[in-house]
Design a binder for these strands. Structure first.
Lengths: 132, 132
DNA sequence: CTTGACGTTTACGTTAACGTAAAGCAAGAT
DNA sequence: ATCTTGCTTTACGTTAACGTAAACGTCAAG
């Protein structure tokens, strides 16, 4: 194992390439909740679960999801089993999310196709231009 | 054919489910450029190419790209062949874009996998709960 | 003991992508 | 002739996701 933690805010910022400000912001929105240590208990200490969550946050951000939505999504993952109703609700949420992601992937695939077309035209154009 | 246009701003807004404001905003950013008609030439008239561009804009937006970046992307599509240097630059841009899109798709696929896992756990949980 | 390095909170500033009036022109309907 | 509908511009307001500055605590090192 590389390191089992805990980690300071600086180490987190370094490892994940985000700013301190961003980490505090995510915490402010309830996406992270590192515990506190030191005198006055005002120094953040990040544990493994915080790192797991941060990975999910950043991936969600890369995909363009709003942070609030990211919050509800990753909360699905470490939710207590709860009642049956809750489980079924969770399943429906999962369905929604999958729908969204699949639509996005379709968009991406279409974009990639079009890029391939464009690239082909460029290469053809270059060829015609080299041997006229 | 359904309709060959031209279209008014209201029809555009209707067909693509965006607001007038958004259409004007995209135009302000140079993403659209409908021509003008009427007395004073102040009434927008949208043609087919505007619709093509708008589709691309909206898809880019769904994927979370900033509008400005969307502009440079869709400008790649109807660029004049230009010099060889331009063509090579365009090809490199295409490479960049493809890289970005492929990273995104990887993120999406990972998310979908995790959702599948979560769903499986939910279903198992439901089963255990029904026949204890 | 004071200087840095690192942490904290509070709070105003910034950018993107529009929303939302406000105020006005033009043309068909009543 | 006015009313409604649809279009226009101008301009201030809003939300998200932080940036950035101010002002302060704390601990190890010089």
């Amino acid at each position: 194992m590389t390191s089992q933690g805990p980690w300071t805010i600086a180490e987190m910022a370094d490892d994940f390439d985000v700013t301190h400000r961003a980490l505090r912001h995510y915490e402010h929105l309830g996406l992270l909740s590192p515990d506190r240590v030191g005198p006055g208990g005002n120094t953040r200490r990040y544990l493994r679960r915080d790192r797991t969550r941060l990975s999910l946050i950043l991936r969600g951000r890369r995909l363009g999801f709003p942070l609030e939505e990211i919050g509800t999504i990753i909360d699905m993952y470490d939710e207590q089993p709860g009642e049956i109703g809750q489980l079924q609700y969770l399943l429906s949420q999962i369905g929604d999310r999958r729908g969204d992601l699949e639509r996005r992937r379709a968009d991406i695939d279409k974009s990639l196709e079009e890029l391939a077309d464009l690239e082909q035209r460029c290469r053809d154009d270059l060829a015609t231009r080299s041997q006229p």
